[in-house]
Computed example of a mutant assay.
Amino acid sequence: MTESARDDQPADHDRTLPDDVTDETVEAVGAVSEALEWVERARGHLYSFHQLMGHADLALGDACDKLRDAGHPAVADRLETELVGRNVLTGRWTFQIVEEFDDGYWSEFRDHERRVRDELQHGHRHVFEARMKEDRRTHGRAGHEGTP
């Protein structure tokens, strides 16, 4: 496809909606999607917490071995007994926190966000952003093409 042919297309013509979908609706649905994006970021931090805590537990186990090798078995035993493998929350290791979050709040939020898009934007994602791209790009300029 030539540059001019690509530039004649809207930024994302597959996201074109019927006229009955107002700008206010697109903005509102975009706000719901943005809220989900913040939850996605929080989920990423939760996974980071999970990995950091797992790494810390393994590192503490290694530190206990070093304490024993350095002649401090009582200190190593105390740390190993009290902290290594300990639940981070009552009854839970971090993988259980991640699973509960994923199976509960995160899945529920994703389902609701998808339902909002299905009901109000015919299932299209990122319509607000696609319209913003079309408004902000410089037609005819390399790097500002409407579509790939």
Rank of each mutant, 00 (worst) to 15 (best):
L89K: 08
G71W: 03
L89N: 07
V116P: 03
L52T: 14
K133E: 12
H122D: 15
D103P: 01
Y105Q: 12
K133V: 04
T2V: 01
E27W: 09
R86V: 06
T81S: 15
S48A: 15
L52E: 15
L67K: 01
L79P: 00
D103N: 14
H45G: 09
R131P: 00
T94V: 07
G44W: 04
D19H: 05
T81Y: 08
D14W: 15
F101K: 04
W38G: 10
T25H: 02
R125H: 11
H139M: 10
D77L: 05
T90I: 08
G140A: 03
P18E: 06
D19M: 04
H13G: 14
L17T: 03
D135H: 11
D103V: 06
L46H: 03
Y105T: 15
F49S: 11
G44C: 05
H124Q: 14
H55E: 13
Q96K: 05
A70R: 07
H122F: 15
R114D: 11
R92Q: 13
R86I: 06
H122A: 14
A35I: 07
N87T: 10
T16Q: 11
T138Y: 08
P73K: 02
G61R: 01
P73D: 03
K133R: 15
R115S: 14
G146K: 02
R125P: 05
V32E: 03
Q9P: 04
D19S: 11
T16C: 08
A70C: 01
L83Q: 07
E40C: 08
D8P: 04
H139R: 15
R141Y: 06
G85S: 03
L89G: 04
R43D: 07
R136G: 06
H122S: 14
S48D: 15
Q51T: 12
T81H: 10
E37F: 08
A142E: 15
E129K: 12
P18I: 05
R68D: 05
R131E: 07
G54R: 05
K66L: 14
E40F: 08
G123C: 02
H50F: 07
F109P: 02
Q121M: 13
Q96T: 04
P73H: 02
S33A: 15
A70N: 09
R137S: 04
T16A: 14
V26Q: 01
C64M: 00
A59D: 10
R41Y: 11
T22N: 00
A56S: 09
L79R: 01
G140K: 00
R41N: 09
H126W: 13
G30N: 03
G91N: 04
V29D: 02
I97A: 07
A130V: 00
H122W: 14
D23N: 09
E129N: 08
L52S: 14
D12G: 10
D65M: 06
G44T: 05
E119A: 09
R115K: 15
G104K: 05
H112Q: 12
T94C: 10
Q9A: 15
P148Q: 06
F49W: 12
E34R: 14
R141V: 12
Y47V: 11
T147L: 10
C64I: 01
E24G: 07
P10S: 07
W38L: 13
A70S: 09
E100N: 09
Q121E: 13
H50K: 11
R125D: 08
H112L: 13
R110D: 13
T22P: 01
V127I: 03
Q96H: 06
E99F: 10
L52Q: 13
A142Y: 10
W106P: 00
T16D: 12
R15A: 12
T2P: 04
F128D: 11
D65I: 02
R125G: 05
R117V: 04
